[in-house]
Structures are given as C-alpha cells and as structure tokens.
C-alpha cells in the first residue's frame, strides 16, 4: 500500500530525522517485489554492460595472452605500443576513411530516395521501401559471404563494364587488390545500410507539416525553393540524429569487413574493430597463427571507446545547442 502512495505523490519521503533510518528500511522492505522484478535486469546489466567498461581498463596494464590470470604488469607499455604500432594507425585511418566516405554518400543517396518515395501520389512506395530495405535487415555476415562469392568467382564479369569504359586494362581484383579492397568494402557498406537512413529520412519528412509547403507555394516558391526553405530546415533535428547514428555505426563496422576481407589483403582493409579482434583472439581461419595480446587489444579498445565517447558527446552538445537556439528564436 505504501508503494502506491509513494508512487502517486512521488514527493519527498518522511523527513523526521530520528525516524528516517527506520522508515527508509520500511519502504525498502515494502518494495521487495520491485527489487525482485529489477534483479535480473540489474545483475545482467551490471555483469555484461557496466563491469566490462571498467574491467577492460584493468587488462591494459598487463602483458597477457589470455591464458590463466594476468600477472605480468607492464604499466602503460601497452598504450605506448599501440600508439607506435603502424598497424593500429592504419586501421584507424581505414575506419576514418570508411566513415568519411560512406556517411556523406549514403546520406545523400538515402535522402534522394526518401524524397522520391515520400510522394503520396507514387504508387507502390511500400514495395520499393521493402526492396531497398532488404539488405539492411538481413545479416551482413551472410550477405557479405554471398557478395564475396560473386566477386571472387565472377569478378571478371563484374569488371567488364570497367574494361569497356577503358578505366582499367585488366580484370579488377575487387577484394584481392590492396588498392581496391577498402573501396569495395566501402561501396558494399553504402549499399548495405542505406535502408536504415532511407527509413529515418522518410520518418523525418513525414513530420514536416503540409501547410508549410502550401504556404511556400502561395509565396511563389518553386520545387527547389521549397526544398531549401521548407524540407531542409524541417529535417534539421532528425538529420542531426541520422548523421551521428551513421558516424557511430560506421566507426564500429566489423561483420562486413570480417567476412569480406578479414582486414586484408596485407591489412589494406583493416579497420579498428578487426585490429582489436585479431590482437585479442588471434587470426582465425586464415591459418596464420597470431598470439593473442589481450592487454594490447584492451588498450586499443579503450582508446577506441574514448574516440566514440568524444563523437557521442559532440552529438549531444550539438543537439542541445540546436534546441537552445530554436527556443531562443
């Protein structure tokens, strides 16, 4: 009964200083079921979300191959090693390249597609939406394997148009060439996750009130002027979220790179996540045995987590500033 009353008022608890401890104990006891209902959530989240964030920091101080307990304390040596590891910087550079190319290209394409599909007079837009969304909803690990198979066996057929256009002299090695592999991964990445941004933009477009377009038309605005003065400002809030989701998602790309190239050839398409995976679990499946360096992998993870934190804080700052500016108007 006391839980109901508290829930309803939600106000300050009984403040009598002397009886405070006792009444707190009483409310704790009366809330037994609430705690019981929260227990699985609290225990599992603590173990699989909160603890790992802090624990990974602990491993960074050890030189550890993952067998037994970490005992070889090395201080900050792992950080120093990561910072001077050319492979780390190359992986970071590739992650940055992936993000910097994918995000703008994909968002422009997704916006164009959303604008076309948003037309209420266009029949079958639900069908098209499903068609373009299919790659995004299916497992990229599996789809990536299919694409790899297509490119590996029939790359010649795929490169025919490029040969005809005179863009290249010999069949392209889309995944096998160190010069091309990263670009192939990026192109497939654009194809793969475009559907999400299309849906996001469609949702954003639907929040723009129709009378704004009507008002613009009355003012004599053409289609382009309407796009610039109504659509773009109307999409600003949703757009900001879309941009940051795309950036954070792209920085964390793993499955796609893992199944397409495994980071190769010669680490040409190695991204941060595949670098960490290789250091933590060794090179699996290629026959090349690499001894796991858990401490090094943890140090790289920690730096990567820090980078993501900077990006997400930037996002929240930007959103807050935008909201404040809007209210200030």
């Amino acid at each position: 009964m006391s839980t109901t009353r508290l829930a309803r008022t939600g106000g300050p608890r009984p403040a009598a200083a002397a009886g405070r401890g006792r009444s707190l104990w009483r409310t704790v006891r009366a809330s037994g079921w609430s705690y019981a209902y929260l227990a699985p959530f609290v225990v599992l989240t603590a173990a699989f979300v909160v603890y790992p964030i802090f624990a990974s920091l602990g491993y960074t101080f050890y030189d550890w191959d993952g067998i037994g307990e970490p005992s070889d304390f090395v201080g900050l040596a792992n950080f120093k090693q990561v910072a001077t590891d050319g492979y780390f910087w190359r992986a970071l550079g590739n992650s940055a390249l992936y993000t910097l190319v994918l995000v703008p290209v994909q968002l422009v394409l997704a916006l164009v597609l959303a604008l076309v599909l948003n037309n209420p007079r266009l029949r079958g837009s639900t069908f098209y939406r499903a068609l373009y969304f299919l790659p995004a909803i299916t497992s990229i690990a599996i789809v990536g394997i299919v694409l790899k198979l297509m490119l590996a066996n029939f790359g010649d057929a795929v490169s025919k148009p490029f040969l005809k256009l005179g863009l290249t002299d010999e069949p392209l090695q889309f995944l096998g060439s160190p010069h091309l592999s990263m670009w192939t991964v990026i192109a497939i990445g654009i194809w793969n996750t475009l559907g999400y941004n299309m849906i996001y933009f469609l949702a954003g477009l639907q929040t723009i009130p129709k009378d704004q377009y009507e008002a613009a038309q009355i003012d004599g605005a053409g289609r382009f002027a309407q796009f610039v003065h109504v659509t773009i400002p109307g999409l600003r809030n949703v757009g900001l979220v879309i941009v940051f989701l795309a950036i954070v998602g792209s920085l964390q790309v793993f499955d796609l790179v893992m199944v397409l190239t495994g980071g190769g050839p010669f680490y040409s398409s190695d991204v941060i996540t595949t670098y960490i995976y290789r250091e933590a679990f060794g090179q699996v499946g290629t026959g090349v045995a690499v001894e796991p360096h858990i401490g090094l992998a943890s140090a790289a993870s920690f730096l990567f987590g820090l980078l993501l934190l900077v990006v997400t804080s930037g996002q929240m700052l930007a959103i807050r500033r935008l909201r404040a500016r809007k209210e200030g108007k």
Binding site: S56, I276, A280, T312
Partner: peptide
C-alpha cells in the same frame, strides 16, 4: 540510481568490451 545508470549506459557507446565479457 538505477535510472541514472540506465541513462548513462544508454548514451555511452559500448565501445569494445568483448575481452572482459569473454573472460567473464
């Protein structure tokens, strides 16, 4: 406290925490 932790972990990137999870 629980609500605070939910908000913090919801907004924080999970980054790369596979090693401690594997160890656990």
């Amino acid at each position: 406290i629980i609500l605070g932790v939910i908000l913090a972990t919801y907004l924080l990137p999970h980054g790369y925490t596979i090693v401690p999870i594997y160890d656990l």
